[in-house]
Design a binder for these strands. Structure first.
Lengths: 188, 188
DNA sequence: GTCTATAAAGCGATAGAC
DNA sequence: GTCTATCGCTTTATAGAC
């Protein structure tokens, strides 16, 4: 029995592996071990090797956030989009059991490889959220602060929930962040 | 010329390297390259190899936080200790240019190696801060929430400031977190 | 498009001289 | 306590059969 893949099928699988093992911890043999995809296939789809695989995963993640989070924040009803963001974020990160690959890459030297992509992901998230807050009637300065607080807070919640290995803490922290953001909408 | 080290001199050097490169990214050859300490010396001080080196670094970090942050939070004047915490945290993480090794280890599979130490570091931080808040007159439930918010927020600030590579964002986020914590002290 | 075989380099770790 | 030499293994990457 022989499975034939498309590049688009492989990228999400690679994403989970990079998330769990980190960039340095991810090796071709462990990819093969977990997915059954051999080196031949991997280099066929990603001639640039591991670095191209990680870049493809980052682009895939970015695309998902662009469609599911940023675009609605920019275009849909602001309050509804913000509410949807919290639900999507909780789902995407599987209540804290799945980490943010972009955030993890930012922490160690991996950042140097993908610096523009990492930066862009967060800049666009904060900016889309900031604009949505402004549309709800929030002042420009307060909107930036609130957007930074929310995006930063999500990353912190991911670190803490992994460190403590407690089921509830991610959701609890997300709720608190959502309340802070709701307060920024109505006031000032 | 030949330099002779003590274990206590090496651990902080290792700490900076693990912080920059991560556990998997840190190799013995890169340690030698950056410190001039050869494999012979490293295995003399750390017979358990790389894992023992990382464990020693974690213990060293833990000891620093215990002395500089947790202990004052438990014993000194609560409001003063909390104020000192923010200053110490900003200094320790060098305004966001230095990451939290414990948080970074929590994100990938490295967590499995050091799970108890990682968990303990955050549990004790949150608990010491919670107790300090209670001593200021904060209710138990609100104190736990505020302590979690602060500790989680610091981790998020580290991720975001590394990702954006902006000098100011770490301090700005820390100030916001400090205000939130101050609000929890006086009220409720 | 996937497989096996293989290359060159780097890995953690050990041994023994000094 | 530090050094060099070396082991066995794994790494990324390539080549070529199918």
């Amino acid at each position: 029995m022989k499975t034939v893949y498309e590049r688009a099928d492989i990228v999400p699988l690679l994403g989970e592996i990079f998330r769990e093992l980190g960039y340095e911890g991810t090796t071709l043999s462990r990819i093969t071990e977990r997915t059954g995809i051999g080196k031949g296939s991997l280099y066929h789809f990603f001639p640039g090797g591991k670095e191209e695989m990680a870049a493809a995963v980052l682009a895939d993640v970015d695309g998902w956030f662009e469609t599911a989070i940023y675009e609605p924040l920019r275009q849909d009803d602001a309050r509804a989009a913000i509410e949807a963001m919290w639900i999507n974020v909780n789902d995407y990160f599987r209540s804290g059991s799945r980490i943010c690959l972009v955030g993890a890459f930012a922490l160690d030297e991996t950042r140097q490889r993908f610096s523009p992509a990492i930066r862009d992901y967060f800049v666009r998230w904060i900016d889309a959220l900031r604009l949505a807050l402004v549309r709800t009637g929030c002042s420009g300065e307060a909107a930036l602060a609130a957007a930074e607080e929310a995006v930063s807070g999500i990353q912190g919640a991911l670190v803490l929930s992994r460190a403590l290995d407690e089921r509830d803490i991610f959701g609890r922290t997300l709720n608190r962040l959502a309340e802070r953001l709701a307060a920024a909408q109505s006031g000032n």
